[in-house]
Nucleic acid binder design. Structure first.
Lengths: 253, 253
DNA sequence: AAGTGGTCTAGACCACTAT
DNA sequence: TAGTGGTCTAGACCACTTT
């Protein structure tokens, strides 16, 4: 085994034109690897794009795509007229997504919602503010528990604007899915919304419902969705015990 | 004012070649706007790339870049041989970044760390596992409080591998910054690490230090950073009261 | 003035999907 | 077979930075 020459020959200096992997991605991976192995360090300038064209025998546009890819991923930064530089590792580059949360929702078999309470109620001050209504206006109200294999996973409470002229309530109160609250159907306008995540203390009632001891922590995930004319359409929150969910992310290369 | 014709003329069907905004981004914004206004709805197929070339009078590569931009942002999905389609709104597309957390750290004026405790200790079972050491191996230990205008903001506890052959401890225990733990200097290898976020109940001690009532919730943010040869280098966690931090994001267009 | 990244062209060929 | 997205070429011009 000649790991040195082998890796250099195969991975460092050649683009395999027969590979299914596109050239631009091969180049991005080569550069990423050189950075992670210390050949280029944070702050260092990468070879210029024209140099990379010559070294690898590919056209400028292809090099450009590779660089753009790395820049999008936060691995390098580019500066017009100066060059391309290896980015320093920073906390703020870390991002996390809700994939784990999604997997909670979409465990279809042996999981369902149990409706605790639902109906029409007058908006209190907070709900009115969140939904852009007047205090006392009617809202649809729902409290439910998501169960998997008879175990409570999370608690959900939501308020929807009550509009007698737009009787789409049935689908939005769909018991077995979050359709309408979260996922826009193919015939709907594309909705948009805001999410906010905080850490919170569960109330006694929430802890009871979720089979947790009383002073327990949980994620508080608030959502506001907007519909037609950018008017608030629904507002609510999830309570997800800390043992059911945690977010993971990776930082660096 | 003729908002209808004006917006169509200016924003919907023409690319302004004199604009500082690149053509590919103009096209992406045009398509995004058409989607958000309901001209294309989730599941609909967008015009093919060759059609877009003709309609807007730009070359295939430029159209391609616009489509790629929208696909990266989750607005559309592409399928080779079939077409480009408007993506449905899904929870899992939501992405959070740690910008807010970063702003906590980098409030330089009137903020500093107060060291509560530091020294060399033997690794317990958990620390040994996290750092890839044997139980009893020496680690550097630090507990500190981050203050802003004399108010406690968050609590930090970390363990570092103690390696007498690599005396870089001074910089890593730098009191006034997180340098060494988080940010790779220009001469270092690019580090990488993992972050994990959970909701937790603060201990009595933590609540006391952070001036919070006892049963209080907080974010528990665990970090492991790796150094040379991908060996664990530091491990620890932050306790950030829920009134100091929350994550926000936007979903949809 | 020389070198850098940023954009764009007008095609080409390929792999895939639908009919 | 026709149409679609995916990749790539070999240049061009521009804006910017450095010397």
């Amino acid at each position: 085994m000649q790991p040195e020459s082998q890796s250099k020959g195969d991975l460092f200096f050649h683009i395999d034109r027969e590979s299914y992997e596109p050239a631009y991605r091969q180049l991005a991976n080569i550069l990423r690897r050189q950075i992670s192995e210390g050949l280029f360090r944070p702050g260092d300038q990468l070879p210029s794009e024209s140099q990379l064209c010559q070294s690898f025998g590919i056209s400028p546009m292809t090099v450009r795509r590779a660089i753009n890819l790395l820049a999008d991923q936060g691995v390098v930064t580019t500066s017009q007229g100066r060059g391309t530089f290896v980015a320093a590792l920073e906390l703020s580059t870390a991002i996390f997504d809700l994939q784990d949360l999604e997997s909670l929702f979409t465990s279809t078999a042996e999981s369902h919602f149990r409706i605790l309470d639902a109906g029409v109620v007058s908006a209190d001050e907070r709900t009115a503010r969140k939904l852009g209504l007047n205090v006392g206006d009617y809202t649809i109200y729902i409290r439910r528990l998501f169960l998997h294999q008879s175990q409570p996973i999370f608690y959900h409470r939501a308020y929807l604007v009550y509009d007698p002229d737009r009787p789409i309530l049935e689908s939005e109160l769909d018991v077995e899915s979050l359709q309408g609250l979260f996922i826009s159907g193919s015939s709907d306008l594309l909705k948009h919304g805001q999410l906010s995540i905080e850490a919170t203390l569960m109330s006694r009632e929430e802890a009871n419902l979720l089979n947790m001891p009383f002073p327990s922590a949980a994620f508080y995930l608030e959502h506001i969705f907007y519909g037609f004319k950018n008017r608030p359409h629904s507002w609510g929150w999830f309570i997800i015990p800390s043992n059911r969910l945690h977010f993971k992310t990776h930082i660096g290369i």
